[in-house]
Amino acid sequence: MDRFDDLLRLTRRLRLSRRESLQPLRWRPAADIYRTREGWLVKVELAGVREQDVDIAAGGRWLTIRGRRCDRECVQAGKSYALEIAYSRFQRVVEFPTSLEGARMTTELRNGMLLIRIVTEEVSGS
């Protein structure tokens, strides 16, 4: 019975994997984007990622956040029983309606969220 269940589950997985076969090699963290008075606030869900493992680059209208999540919290004494969190490299590209040329950026990692504040000249001028 167990073997049969395994087989079923495996088959279901196989279907899933075919659909998921388009998954890129890097995982893609979720992001919220806010329009603020002085510019933009980008909130990226990056739980478990150290600040020094994140690399943020702006170019034209694109902001690229990439990096690597290592499993530093893994319990050395125990055995892994289930795994769902994506480790290793990630990458997220956010597109803006205007160019980010000359904008100032500050980043803060708080409660597992990476907050990127972007102050554009346009807003600061007004």
Binding site: D6, R9, L10, R13, L83
Partner: peptide
């Protein structure tokens, strides 16, 4: 890369990429 993992009684099932 191990993307997913589930352990059953005597086997480990993994989704590898």
């Amino acid at each position: 890369l191990i993307r997913r993992m589930v352990r059953s009684e005597e086997t480990i099932e993994v989704l590898l990429q």
